[in-house]
């Protein structure tokens, strides 16, 4: 990951459960990249998976991006909206990369119906590998900021805190550009709350 002179090179895999607002995150990151004058490609998943399935979105920022897809071992950051989804995306992360994860657990139907098991203590057990983990209760933070729907913006705030060298105004301008005007205040609070957590890699 390099941000020198805004020469941002970054592959971010966003993963979550359909309906959690992952698409807004990728639009936001794309907007940031454009403001920095970088090339960017975003690959989104629409359609059936959005009905409660596992949803992956790739964001690739660089000088000249060809494929919109992130392969295994290629992601600098996995941004996960749900606990076990972070685990699901782990193969995409490169050694030395960073997992930013919401500790919220949303049980998949096979777990609810008893045919599969949801592993315990996923955030803790993900630590100790050859990569960094930032885990936080983004849902709790979003609720305390005024809306549980701001989980995505809390996580984006965390991400922004881990990427040095980009002026805060750039992030905020992009945020203003992608969230509806009437929801800007709550989203700004959520972003700031997340941003404070970024870089504190021992936070559980």
């Amino acid at each position: 990951m390099s941000t020198e002179g805004y020469g941002l090179e970054l592959n971010i895999l966003i993963i979550g459960v359909g309906g959690q607002g992952t698409l807004l995150s990728s639009r936001f990151l794309g907007d940031v990249a454009l403001r920095l004058g970088r090339d960017v490609k975003v690959s989104e998943v629409h359609g059936m998976s959005q009905r409660g399935g596992s949803v992956e979105t790739c964001v690739r920022i660089g000088e000249n991006i060809a494929s919109p897809i992130i392969d295994r071992g290629m992601a600098d950051v996995v941004l996960s909206f749900e606990s076990v989804e972070a685990l699901r995306a782990l193969d995409y992360l490169k050694p030395g990369g960073t997992v930013i994860m919401n500790t919220q657990e949303i049980l998949p139907m096979p777990v609810i119906s008893g045919t599969a098991v949801y592993p315990e203590n996923v955030p803790e057990r993900l630590k100790g590998g050859n990569y960094n983990v930032i885990s936080l209760d983004a849902l709790g933070i979003a609720e305390s900021c005024g809306s549980p729907k701001c989980v995505n913006v809390v996580l984006l705030g965390v991400l922004s805190g881990t990427i040095p060298g980009i002026p805060e105004e750039v992030w905020l301008e992009s945020l203003k550009n992608v969230v509806p005007a009437k929801l800007l205040d709550v989203n700004l609070r959520a972003f700031e709350a997340g941003r404070k957590q970024g870089g504190n890699e021992t936070k559980v």
Binding site: M74, P108, M109, L126
Partner: peptide
């Protein structure tokens, strides 16, 4: 490319999440 390696869990421990 070699993916990151976890010391505890592996990707196959993640339960499926169908729509």
């Amino acid at each position: 490319a070699a993916p990151a390696e976890s010391s505890g869990l592996t990707v196959s421990d993640a339960p499926m999440r169908p729509p």
